[in-house]
């Protein structure tokens, strides 16, 4: 589905990504772990075209490095940014409508607005309320649902559980599994090891702008040295 080869990225003069290699297969949940500032979010942004990447980014067999963000989105890449970016002044329903691609009708593709309301009755109850008054957890759900409305084949989700209560974390995990069930590939950026190890099929660990470990959750559990050096605080 996604194949990133030797990807570099820069902010001004600082060399943030120094040759990232990773791949995601169809229907796979892949977790991208690492401490703050090692380049996990930048990896997502570079794939999305928000930061210009140097190197190769193949999506469904097509080179997307150098394309504009909205073009990449329309090819089927979804991105849920870390700061939830709920559109102020718009209702929950309007936020969801904006997730639809230009020309796309609700109900075409894997998800409909009704699916979202069925999955999270909170959104249904507050569909016509200005979305900026929703709780943090509800907002997180809304941003994820908003991206799913566009029927992406791959979603990159940045820190979805940050600052959420344990119940909400559980809801997020359920949604991630539902996403995988519908055949969508997921790149999950996380700090919480437990959720990542529970639901991911494969794991990458990043350090200093590079991938420093690649394997299954079981393999990562067995590698205490990796966890000590790159993950634990």
């Amino acid at each position: 589905m996604l194949e990133v080869r030797d990807m570099h990225a820069y902010y001004g003069k600082s060399h943030i990504l120094q040759g990232v290699n990773l791949n995601i297969q169809e229907g796979e949940i892949v977790a991208l772990l690492g401490r703050n500032g090692v380049g996990r979010s930048t990896t997502c942004k570079a794939v999305m075209g928000e930061v210009s990447p140097v190197g190769s980014v193949m999506f469904k067999g097509q080179e997307i490095a150098g394309k504009k963000a909205f073009e990449i989105a329309n090819l089927g890449v979804g991105y849920v940014p870390e700061n939830r970016d709920i559109f102020p002044g718009l209702t929950t329903r309007q936020n969801l409508i904006l997730g639809l691609k230009p020309g796309q009708k609700d109900g075409v593709g894997r998800w409909s607005m009704q699916d979202m309301f069925d999955l999270f009755s909170n959104l249904d109850n507050r569909a016509d309320v200005e979305a900026s008054v929703l709780s943090g957890g509800e907002q997180q759900m809304l941003t994820m649902c908003r991206t799913l409305m566009g029927d992406p084949d791959l979603v990159m989700i940045d820190e979805p559980t940050e600052g959420l209560s344990p119940q909400m974390v559980q809801r997020v995990a359920e949604l991630l599994q539902e996403i995988a069930k519908r055949g969508i590939s997921t790149l999950l950026v996380e700090q919480k090891l437990s959720i990542a190890l529970d639901i991911a099929h494969r794991v990458y660990v990043m350090g200093h702008g590079k991938v420093v470990f690649e394997g299954t959750p079981q393999e990562l559990k067995a590698r205490e040295d990796v966890r000590k050096e790159w993950l634990e605080v």
Binding site: M48, A73, P81, D85, F87, L90, L98, K101, R146
Partner: peptide
């Protein structure tokens, strides 16, 4: 109009949803 309103605050996010923000 909704896209414009959304792009007033978060143009990048709107673009990541597939709208031609430029």
């Amino acid at each position: 109009g909704m896209i414009i309103q959304a792009a007033l605050s978060y143009p990048r996010t709107v673009e990541a949803l597939g709208h031609n923000v430029p």
